[in-house]
């Protein structure tokens, strides 16, 4: 990610340190993750110590300090999904992709995340694959969805 783009995002927020989280969110959505150079740029331009940026980027779950996989899988583990078997769905996701929750495989195929609740509780268990929602899903069904993803990326 080039520094001109980063500066553009920072300037959109008037280089206001109070908008730090919004700026980081925008950099992440532009670049998919937060490279070290980007953080340094933000730290210098906003005059925010790197210590705070390190804390923020590890405190808030959305931020990623490593590149994300081509396919982003979010498994909802909210209570409604939990009582309807989200744990087994998550196991199936980890099984099929070989990636543990919170991790990305070295080939950058899959990033697996658990989400506290995505607010589609009536459809539990829910898995979001690349922005597409799969509701009332069974372990077998999600395995099939992800196998198709894996084929596409090969």
């Amino acid at each position: 990610m080039n520094s001109a783009k980063i500066d553009q995002i920072i300037n959109k927020h008037n280089a206001d340190a109070g908008s730090l989280i919004q700026i980081l969110l925008e950099i992440q959505s532009e670049n998919n993750w937060l490279p070290r150079e980007a953080l340094t740029r933000v730290s210098e331009t906003l005059d925010v110590p790197m210590s705070r940026i390190r804390h923020i980027t590890t405190f808030y779950k959305t931020f990623s300090l490593v590149p994300k996989g081509r396919h982003e899988v979010h498994v909802c583990t909210g209570t409604a999904c939990h009582v309807r078997g989200a744990e087994r769905v998550l196991e199936a996701v980890e099984d099929v992709t070989g990636v543990k929750a919170g991790e990305t495989d070295p080939d950058l195929n899959f990033s697996i995340e658990t989400v506290g609740c995505i607010g589609c509780c009536a459809l539990g268990p829910v898995v979001v694959v690349d922005g597409e929602y799969h509701g009332n899903i069974t372990p077998t069904e999600i395995a099939d969805v992800l196998k198709t993803c894996a084929c596409k990326s090969e």
């Binding site: 110590p49 790197m50 210590s51 705070r52 390190r54 804390h55 590890t58 405190f59």
Partner: peptide, 9 residues
């Protein structure tokens, strides 16, 4: 100086 930081939660 902010040489030490908290991380994670």
């Amino acid at each position: 100086k902010n040489a030490v930081a908290f991380i994670e939660r």
